[in-house]
């Protein structure tokens, strides 16, 4: 993802990142929207949709969808790091599911690249629903750094 140009403003970065994410078929299929990006952090949201439901009795988004959002958001945060990696790939990702999302609500993930070495980026992320009463899920992960 070509984001993080030194003179580009935060809005400009978000626009470029959105364009990049819009070119990813699966991110588009899930309706992912870049809310904010820059300085090794990213916020991406996703609306509720009937085909993303995991438990029809409760109308709650499937955990796997939260994984997909967390993974994309972490990848975007790596790409937005000031060291500007050429590309990145997930090495591992751990997700803790704290509570079920509220029925019919979209999810917003916020990821932060809190440490980076020559070849590895370390990430933390949380996912909230619309009420925001504490996170729905949290994640930690490591990503490759291609220079």
């Amino acid at each position: 993802m070509m984001v993080g140009a030194d003179d580009a403003g935060r809005d400009e970065q978000a626009r470029i990142a959105q364009q990049f994410i819009g070119a990813i078929p699966h991110a588009r299929a899930l309706g992912m929207q870049v809310e904010d990006i820059g300085a090794g952090k990213a916020t991406i949201s996703m609306p509720w949709a009937p085909h993303l439901v995991g438990d029809p009795r409760r109308n709650v988004i499937h955990g796997g969808v939260v994984s997909a959002l967390m993974d994309t958001c972490c990848g975007a945060a790596v790409m937005a790091h000031p060291e500007r990696p050429r590309s990145t790939a997930t090495i591992d990702l751990r997700i803790d599911y704290m509570r079920a999302a509220n029925p019919g609500q979209g999810i917003t993930a916020r990821a932060e690249c809190y440490h980076i070495t020559r070849s590895v980026a370390f990430l933390r992320a949380v996912a909230m629903d619309e009420d925001g009463e504490g996170p729905v899920a949290s994640a930690t992960g490591t990503f490759t750094v291609e220079r």
Binding site: A23, I24, P25, H26, A27, H62, G63, G64, V65, S67, A68, L69, M70, D71, T72, G75, A89, T90, L93
Partner: peptide, 15 residues
């Protein structure tokens, strides 16, 4: 998830 390679989205694999 990566239209250039192309590759399946890591989130799809996770799900």
């Amino acid at each position: 998830g990566n239209p250039v390679l192309p590759a399946i989205h890591g989130g799809v694999t996770a799900a």
